[in-house]
Design a binder for these strands. Structure first.
Length: 417
DNA sequence: TAGTGTTTAGAGTTGC
DNA sequence: GCAACTCTAAACACTA
């Protein structure tokens, strides 16, 4: 499995070879009339044999941006000749509505089309499985073989992407699961395996911080966020494999005995000292245990203890962090979006989508702050939950779905042309 | 009880 | 070849 991941991630030329071929992007009827973002990819998806009824897909399409939620199985595993796609036009909007009541079932934004697009491309085009079929050129076999292919991203990358894409910049474990599953159908299987790995990654890697729930927002599990200084973990914006592991300075001295903790010459730890943090409003309570200390080692962000900000003390987590994080997210140059690597998050989101996304981020945040405030019933778990369900998993993941496949899978085509 | 979080261990992959 | 990184599995503790 790992081989495939590595291969996927690094043999970019293969991707070009695989996906840069016009026959894989046969447009279908009116679908090609859409010149909006992602429509090329949409066309790609729609080139599935048996998808002959494109009339439903013309014009301003139904909202397909979130059809991958709960529909992925049927979509990804859809038999090309099943004719199931015929009902998409009528069914997708309904599915979207059902899956996401907050989202208008009718979206005229072309990015929404990208979602299906991208997701579908993912399902169809990942080079992970059935490579022999790639060469065989049998469209049916070819596309079926690519369903549920493992994305070329590490778990750390996935988590990082999910958190970055989240409006609130932090998600619960379950939301992380959902985000990953929604975006990558591969992770709808063997959940115990990869979810354990996700949990492990969260706990083990210093770049992820646990943000406790506020007392008035009960719920299971904490929120997870990115360490504010973990910005350049993925150099060049490439989310395939970190060049260096983010580590807390404090831990370097005390974790001499940690076997797989990395570090060493390659590690270039950035300051995570709460007092010296460049993010004065964000402090990290380092509770990592010394070698001899049996206590938990996980870093916990504790804003209530260190909150020299104007934020009232009645503002509990996660709202408080949320404010800080969101604030930073929008004011501080984001390392993660600063590159244009083929596997960068930039390519998961088109510029237009990013703008749209940021607008929504800000708008959502402002609305939340305006109408609900920190200490309101909408803050904390509830608001975060809704935010996550709505914005993080819809607004955030939607363009991501879109762009993941559009960017990652379509980009080679663009480059090759 | 299920979900969450932590920790350890081992093996594979990658970069230097 | 080595170190670092990643993945996977498993055990265990805690909590809603």
């Amino acid at each position: 499995m790992l081989n495939a991941v590595k291969m996927e991630g690094h043999e970019h030329s293969d991707w070009n070879a695989y996906y840069g071929e016009p026959e894989c992007y046969t447009s279908v009827g009116n679908m090609t009339q859409h010149t909006g973002l992602g429509m090329n990819s949409m066309s790609t998806y729609m080139s599935i044999p048996g998808m002959t009824s494109t009339s439903n897909m013309t014009g301003n399409p139904m909202n397909m941006s979130y059809v991958n939620t709960g529909v992925n199985h049927s979509m990804a595993g859809m038999s090309p000749g099943s004719g199931a796609m015929h009902s998409m036009g009528a069914g997708m909007a309904g599915m979207s509505t059902a899956l996401n009541p907050n989202m208008s079932p009718i979206s005229t934004q072309s990015p929404s089309m990208n979602a299906l697009t991208s997701y579908s491309n993912m399902s169809v085009m990942s080079p992970m499985y059935g490579q022999s079929n790639i060469r065989s050129r049998d469209p049916k076999t070819y596309r079926r073989s690519y369903t549920h292919a493992k994305p070329p991203y590490s778990y750390i990358s996935l988590i990082t992407m999910a958190l970055q894409q989240s409006t609130t910049k932090m998600l619960t474990l379950n939301e992380l699961y959902q985000w990953i599953q929604d975006l990558f159908p591969f992770y709808r299987q063997n959940q115990q395996r990869w979810q354990n790995s996700i949990r492990h990654s969260l706990s083990f890697n210093d770049c992820f911080l646990k943000v406790p729930r506020s007392p008035d927002k009960p719920g299971k599990g904490s929120f997870w966020t990115l360490h504010p200084d973990s910005g350049n973990m993925f150099e060049n914006g490439c989310y395939l494999r970190r060049q260096k592991r983010f580590r807390c300075e404090k831990d370097l001295g005390r974790e001499t005995g940690r076997k797989t903790s990395g570090g060493g010459p390659n590690s270039s730890p950035e300051s995570c000292n709460g007092n010296e943090s460049p993010h004065p409003t964000l402090s990290v309570k380092d509770v990592k245990r010394p070698v001899s200390d049996p206590k938990p080692r996980q870093q916990v962000m504790s804003p209530t203890e260190h909150a020299p900000t104007p934020v009232p003390q009645t503002h509990h987590l996660p709202s408080q962090h949320h404010s800080v994080l969101v604030h930073e997210a929008h004011l501080k140059p984001d390392h993660h979006y600063s590159f244009n690597h083929p596997f960068s998050i930039n390519n998961l989101m088109s510029s237009e989508q990013q703008q749209h996304h940021h607008k929504i981020d800000l708008k959502t945040y402002e609305q939340m702050m305006q109408y609900h405030g920190y200490g309101s019933p909408m803050t904390g778990a509830l608001s975060m939950g809704s935010m996550s369900n709505k914005t993080s998993l819809d607004v955030a993941s939607t363009p991501t779905d879109t762009s993941y496949y559009q960017g990652v899978y379509s980009r080679p085509i663009m480059n090759s042309s």
